[in-house]
Design a protein around this nucleic acid. Structure first.
Length: 593
RNA sequence: GCUGAUGUAGCUCAGUCGGUUAGAGCACGGAACUCAUAAUUCCGGGGUCGGUGGUUCAAGUCCACCCAUCAGCACCA
């Protein structure tokens, strides 16, 4: 029976382009995972969207003299472009500025309030009279009381690294206009995490054997250290209003509402499908599995705070059956960080490879291949252009691209452009063995993918690819064809069957070139569905979203039955070799940028 | 500073419950082959498993301490 698999990915903050760290850590892994499950015939729902709220967006919009909405929409559209180019196949990639998301976030707030998991607290906060708004800690500067450094931020001193309260600062001033802020009283809503602590601990303590050790250890420690209430409202005007009378100037704090996007986007997707209740297949079916792909900096928000919000909501919303409960995260396969040329990626220091830029110069599949090979699954890893080029040339092209090219080229030239028939002698031991070995890959590779061990899964496919090269060298059809053309035909038939199966095993990782191979082998149809953007109109606002239609996809996670005599299409190499000199050029580009 | 993770071959990384002589790919050396993008295949060299100490018949694996790197430490999300 098909499983219901919900694939959630971190909501990219829409104030800048995506870089390779985002792709390797949070966007490519879930896409590979989702594509596998779709091939497997499971019901996949993959959702996310742009995080459009928060102070950094308002600050940057102010600096550019445009509205926050204009700013985030610019980057939102660029995300859509990037995801289409590299093939991150969201069923729905929306954003948090939709009316739907507003409503769902407000309903969750209300449920938390009614269930007694919110409380109010008044405190003193710095207010900028010139800007007419409260200032977040990190937008206040002043002199550090510990070391005397003048550029200390309200949350931490960059010089002595001590953590600060903004009221600790000597001569505090606004970072944006240098004015002196004044203290003013303000009341905020807090999520009562201490009250939820036992329930969160219970959730984290059962059936977590499949979680990555760093994720579960960190989360348990986080809770055991003692949770404190967290404010979930802020005094800004950009964001989701509080659904209560008397708080017109307050908005839901981003961290509270952004994670709700997983839920609201599922609801939006169902409505877009014209089946408004279908989201319940993933959220209320206790057998459904929900996965959250994020970077390590985001762990507590997905393993502690999002479950806390769901529990505080009573684990039930838009559902009358009291027996039903909203699913808490089944797995949170958080990744570590990807460094570049030995140094941490940094937007402010412009030490990053931006996805739109990289995709201008390289094909998507080699990028997907390399970013999977070096994916930071268990530790920080390093992207270098030298390594990218070498792995492209010496692994992807040499082992897989060349295998495809030599087999297809030989078949096309020597067997009249058709899949040759099995000769009268039938299949021998070597033929049967390589076929069986590669067919077994559907289980071994599939198990690794299902366990989110994507690097190990790709490695296993590469191992099978090497085995196929060994088979081919053992048979040497270029010799056989001189003595016994029918035997050569058998070998080439077997080799074609093998690459036909490898095509599916590689497809979650390399969807674009596997589609090409599918066509060279003489098949019609698309292995995967179609990605497209669509504009949706609600009552007042419209938004553009990335969508995916799997209904016409023909790819199946099972051994193929390549018909003898099937006409092939004229083959061409799937991949290009890259000049080693490119590495120096790329580094020069980085340094001058 | 506190909490957690990571450290294994030249490079990138696997190593399950403690169990034979520590693995893979790439790179490197030699050979075979020529269908293929000089790709492929076979053979080979290469490691004090970050350090010190401990537990054990047995430690890459468990424990303690130390060193290095990374993350979190609650108003960035």
């Amino acid at each position: 029976m098909p499983e219901n698999i919900l694939v959630c990915t971190a909501w990219p903050y829409a104030n800048g382009d995506l870089h390779i760290g985002h792709l390797a850590g949070a966007y490519l892994p879930p896409d590979i995972f989702a594509r596998y499950h779709r091939l497997k015939g499971n019901n996949v729902l993959m959702v996310s969207g742009s995080d459009s709220h928060g102070t950094p967006i308002t600050i940057r919009a102010d600096a550019e003299g445009i509205s926050p909405r204009e700013l985030f929409e610019r980057y939102h559209l660029r995300f859509l472009e990037t995801f289409q180019q590299i093939g991150v196949s969201y069923d729905l990639f929306t954003h948090t500025d939709t009316e739907n998301h507003y409503r769902v976030a407000q309903d969750i707030f209300t449920a938390c309030l009614n269930n007694g998991y919110l409380y109010r607290k008044t405190e003193q906060q710095f207010f900028s009279e010139t800007e007419g708004r409260f200032l977040p800690d990190r937008y206040i500067e002043g002199t550090c009381p510990h070391c005397g450094y003048d550029g200390a931020r309200g949350d931490q001193c960059d010089n002595c690294k001590k953590l600060l309260e903004p009221t600790d600062l000597i001569n505090p001033r606004s970072k944006t206009d240098g004015s002196t802020p004044v203290l003013r009283e303000t009341e905020h809503f807090y999520l009562d995490l201490p009250k939820l602590s036992d329930q969160i601990l219970a959730y984290l303590s059962e059936n977590k054997e499949h979680w990555r050790p760093q994720v579960i250890n960190f989360s348990l420690q986080y809770v055991k250290d003692g949770l404190k209430g967290r404010p979930i409202t802020r005094d800004i005007d950009w964001g989701i209003p509080i659904p209560l009378e008397g708080y017109p100037e307050k908005r839901l704090y981003v961290w509270f509402e952004a994670v709700i996007g997983y839920f609201s986007a599922s609801i939006e997707w169902a409505r877009n499908q014209g089946r408004p209740e279908q989201w319940k297949d993933w959220w209320y079916d206790p057998a459904a599995k929900t996965y959250y792909f994020i970077g390590k900096d985001n762990i507590p928000f997905h393993t502690v705070i999002w479950p806390a919000e769901l529990i505080a909501t009573g684990r039930r919303l838009y559902e009358d059956d009291p027996a039903k409960q909203l699913n808490l995260p089944y797995d949170v396969p958080a990744n570590e960080y990807l460094n570049m040329e030995g140094k941490k990626l940094s937007t402010s220091r412009n030490w990053a490879i931006w996805a739109p830029d990289l995709l201008e110069r390289y094909d998507p599949d080699p990028i997907r291949f390399y970013l999977t090979v070096i994916a930071p699954e268990t530790r920080d890893t390093d992207f270098t252009f030298e390594d990218f080029i070498r792995r492209n040339n010496d692994e992807l092209v040499a082992a897989w691209g060349n295998l495809v090219n030599r087999v297809l080229g030989f078949a096309y030239k020597r067997f009249d452009g058709k899949v040759p028939p099995i000769g009268p002698a039938g299949l021998d031991e070597a033929d049967r063995q390589i076929l069986a070995e590669v067919e077994a890959g559907f289980e071994t590779v599939g198990d690794l993918l299902a366990a989110v061990r994507l690097k190990a899964a790709l490695e296993e496919v590469m191992r099978l690819t090497r085995a196929a090269n060994v088979y081919l060298d053992g048979k040497a059809p270029w010799h056989q064809i001189k003595e016994d053309p029918a035997a050569a035909g058998t070998s080439i038939y077997v080799a074609l069957r093998v690459i036909d199966n490898l095509k599916i095993l590689f497809a979650p990782f390399l969807p674009f070139t596997c589609q090409k191979l599918h066509e060279y082998l003489g098949y019609d149809g698309q292995l995967f569905g179609r990605q497209y953007t669509q504009t949706f109109t609600e009552t007042e606002r419209t938004h553009v979203a990335l969508c995916y239609d799997h209904s016409q996809a023909v790819g199946r996670w099972e051994p193929g039955r390549l018909p003898e005599g099937q006409p092939l299409r004229k083959p061409a190499p799937l991949f290009k070799k890259l000049e080693p000199e490119l590495a120096e050029q790329e580094i020069a580009r980085l340094l001058e940028a």
